[in-house]
């Protein structure tokens, strides 16, 4: 009971994930002398970037009460399309990038069309897209990595030899997600739809149209994540980002969003993605086996959601 009162009343409760991140960072810097170095932290940032960008897109979807399982596959497909079109002689790479982003958006639109007009459950529609996008990536690449054009590969570099571009892209996409969620009509409509779809509809929100935008954003963010990942690896790989959708969902949920919709923040998702990256990095530094790492991360996801659930029960 004492714990409940504590959680209910405090600022901690609203920012549980942030507190967990701070505790984690402090603990790891005590346990490992290598952890708290600028190089390592930037490394963590680079490792977090792809998951975080996918998760920002996922936040939109989860706030509306949906789920997007296809983002890992869509990321891979977009990257493959970029590398493939950039290899066409005479086609400038910026245009190839645009094409790649459009592919991501179109995948999202197909998801949304199946969900909003076909009335498929989001889980099923995006599960189908998970297979379709991955398959198309394999078909286009014929199963082999395609080298990225040099210009795009610079995305994997650093600015001024210091700030890694993936970290910068992550911050920009995070800020964009926050602005969309907090300030725009599209974002506010996401919360209303996730909170009560029928009430939103009866208040004049065009639910189907808003879902199209939501999943299109998720697809677009996935494309950006795919490009960032491929630029880091200097090649687009058809099997890249497999399973990343689950990391992204975990980040969103650790960040305090509710899978039943209506709740979630970009900052929370950012913290959630950082927690996952810091954990992996720290466990590596501590030479914990990759097998045990999976166990630890599973436990952390369960704990994060459990704390949140207990807190909510305490409030009602």
């Amino acid at each position: 009971m004492v714990g409940n009162v504590f959680l209910r009343r405090s600022w901690l409760a609203e920012n549980g994930a942030l507190v967990a991140l701070v505790v984690l960072v402090v603990a790891l810097s005590l346990l490992s002398s290598d952890f708290l170095s600028v190089t390592n932290l930037l490394n963590v940032g680079v490792q977090a970037a792809v998951t975080a960008i996918l998760a920002f897109g996922g936040t939109f979807v989860i706030v509306t009460g949906g789920i997007d399982l296809s983002v890992g596959s869509v990321a891979a497909l977009s990257a493959i399309v970029l590398a493939w079109t950039a290899a066409v002689p005479g086609l400038p790479w910026p245009l190839a990038t645009v094409v790649s982003l459009v592919v991501g958006v179109v995948c999202g639109l197909v998801n949304a069309a199946l969900i909003a007009y076909g009335k498929l459950p989001p889980f099923i529609a995006t599960l189908a897209m998970l297979g379709i996008a991955r398959g198309l990536a394999l078909v286009i690449s014929q199963g082999s990595p395609i080298p990225m054009p040099d210009a795009v590969s610079h995305l994997g570099d650093t600015i001024g030899g210091y700030l890694p571009v993936p970290v910068l892209v992550m911050l920009v996409m995070g800020a964009l997600a926050a602005v969309i969620l907090n300030r725009t009509y599209v974002g506010r409509a996401m919360y209303a739809i996730g909170g009560n779809e029928e009430a939103a509809r009866l208040s004049g929100i065009k639910v189907s149209r808003q879902k199209l935008i939501t999943y299109a954003l998720s697809g677009g963010f996935a494309a950006v994540a795919g490009i960032v990942l491929a630029s880091r690896l200097a090649s687009a790989q058809p099997q890249a980002a497999a399973g990343y959708e689950l990391d992204a969902i975990a980040a969103v949920v650790i960040g305090g969003a509710s899978l039943s919709g209506g709740k979630g923040r970009a900052l929370g998702t950012f913290v959630g993605a950082l927690i996952l990256a810091v954990l992996r990095n720290g466990l590596n530094l501590l030479s914990v086996s990759a097998f045990w790492q999976q166990v630890v991360i599973g436990v952390v996801i369960a704990l994060a959601v459990l704390v949140d659930t207990l807190r909510r029960r305490g409030m009602s």
């Binding site: 300030r183 725009t184 209303a192 929100i205």
Partner: peptide, 25 residues
């Protein structure tokens, strides 16, 4: 009602579209 949202948000649901300029509420 959107039960999980606050009073201000609920009161503004209908007018939100009209209060949007260039996408921003």
């Amino acid at each position: 009602l959107v039960l999980g949202a606050d009073i201000g948000e609920n009161l503004g649901l209908v007018t939100m579209r009209g209060a949007t300029r260039a996408g921003f509420v």
